[in-house]
Amino acid sequence: MAMRLIYAIVIIVGFAAILADHLSSPSSGRPVSPEDFAGACAPCGAPCPSTQKK
């Protein structure tokens, strides 16, 4: 299939998915990253080894 057609489909489907997710999910106010939460020790929110041992 032509690459431009694939791109057109990806843009439309992708944007529809973002819109559907946004409209059907709660918004927590200010955007957050996992590091914002207590106990996060990495950008993905993983806990520190010292707390895992406890």
């Binding site: 973002i18 918004s27 106010g29 993905c44």
Partner: peptide, 15 residues
């Protein structure tokens, strides 16, 4: 874990 759990539940535009 709190961060990923919240991200999965919330709008993608909150991440």
């Amino acid at each position: 874990w709190p961060g990923p759990k919240r991200a999965l539940a919330d709008s993608i535009l909150s991440d």
